[in-house]
């Protein structure tokens, strides 16, 4: 049911499939935006996979759950024998199912249409990183849905998606972004040595472009983000606003789900 309702929502399809695949094909074929040196696909494919995670685990999940809360669906489910864990499991399965289709679609387009060949890097890291990213972004999404009004969740999830799409280095290389943005991302890079330092950190941390253009590059970046986003995941485990406990702000402990 979760899955069916998600797929029924046109905006969800756009955000989960349209944007990542569209960006992948467009950026691989058209040379309009700054790119990293080397094979564009080696940079783009991992980035687009990460984008897919963000779209299904955060944007789609947060918006759907936010509206379920405002329509009192979660409260109503709380008055059925369905348990909280079962509901979260259903949501998780729906997200994972969509993610699986996304990954297959992205890889199919990348290898079949665009001719991407992954390198022999640590491919086993791909599912691990996808899993970590999904958990982190799902936690973030559910925390928003649980704590904010539905329309705020909608705006915030979409806004975060766009901002991260632009500045996180998933799709547009970090060192091609305006200097002040890139500097902020890089942290304490000394002014004189900004560019070399950036490149070095990119090699070590994000491992993208340049010397290691292939394989599951970009995973480092995703994992770092996963680490940073872990706070909301912790919130989700607790009794706080992360889980689908409805209206925690308004009424204290409502305990709508067992």
């Amino acid at each position: 049911m979760e899955l069916r309702l998600t797929l029924r929502n046109g905006e969800n399809l756009l955000v989960t499939f349209g944007i990542p695949l569209g960006l992948l094909v467009f950026l691989a074929r058209v040379d309009v935006v700054p790119r990293a040196p080397g094979d564009p696909l080696a940079f783009l494919v991992p980035g687009v996979l990460a984008l897919s995670v963000m779209s299904s685990a955060m944007v789609a999940l947060a918006i759907a759950t936010g509206f379920e809360r405002s329509w009192l669906v979660l409260k109503r489910l709380g008055a059925t024998p369905l348990r909280r864990g079962e509901l979260i499991a259903a949501k998780s399965l729906a997200v994972l199912a969509i993610l699986a289709v996304q990954v297959v679609a992205v890889l199919a387009v990348a290898t079949g249409v665009l001719g991407y060949r992954p390198g022999a890097g640590a491919l086993w890291l791909v599912p691990v990183a996808l899993g970590l990213g999904t958990a982190a972004f799902a936690g973030l999404g559910l925390a928003m849905a649980g704590g904010l009004p539905a329309s705020t969740t909608l705006a915030l999830a979409n806004g975060l998606y766009v901002v991260l799409l632009l500045v996180s280095g998933l799709v547009f290389p970090l060192d091609r972004l305006p200097g002040w943005l890139a500097a902020r991302r890089r942290g304490p890079a000394r002014r004189g040595a900004r560019r070399p330092a950036a490149r070095g950190s990119r090699r070590r941390g994000c491992g993208r472009g340049g010397d290691r253009p292939r394989g599951p590059g970009g995973l480092g970046g995703r994992r770092r983000r996963a680490g940073r986003a872990r706070l909301p995941l912790g919130v989700r485990r607790g009794p706080g606003p992360g889980g689908p406990s409805p209206e925690p702000g308004r009424s204290g402990r409502t305990g709508c789900l067992p």
Partner: peptide, 12 residues
């Protein structure tokens, strides 16, 4: 249980 309002998925 019937809530005073809401409680249903609008897209279902």
């Amino acid at each position: 249980v019937l809530l005073q309002e809401g409680g249903t998925y609008k897209a279902a």
